[in-house]
């Protein structure tokens, strides 16, 4: 007896969506390259990281289908990202105040 539990998710993402996402990603990349040539002082790092985060959210949500899949994947991923952020913050409690 072959027992199969195939993927229940029936949403097929159209090619078009991926092209749009790629265009946005390329636009964000171009922005971050251009922005670094402008002197923003301490904001440079922040801007670059914000743009990188936006890009990775797009990749996670659309390319990796978190937007279309069951919520469990998204919850787990969100939890892991929060964990990483807390760990970095706690580590810097040492370095900021040393």
């Amino acid at each position: 007896m072959k027992h199969i539990m195939a993927n229940k998710n029936n949403h097929i993402v159209p090619y078009r969506t991926y092209v749009y996402v790629l265009l946005i990603l390329l636009f964000l990349t171009a922005t971050s390259v251009i922005v670094t040539n402008i002197e923003l002082g301490t904001l440079t790092v922040t801007t670059a990281l914000v743009l990188a985060s936006l890009k990775s959210i797009l990749v996670f949500a659309i390319f990796m289908h978190l937007k279309f899949d069951q919520p469990v994947y998204g919850i787990m991923t969100g939890g892991v990202i929060i964990l990483i952020i807390i760990v970095i913050l706690i580590t810097f409690l040492d370095y900021f105040f040393r």
Binding site: I90, L93, D94, Y95, F96, F97, R98
Partner: peptide, 10 residues
């Protein structure tokens, strides 16, 4: 080890 005071009490 020489961590900051803030890190110590946290």
């Amino acid at each position: 080890s020489g961590m900051s005071g803030t890190a110590l009490y946290t």
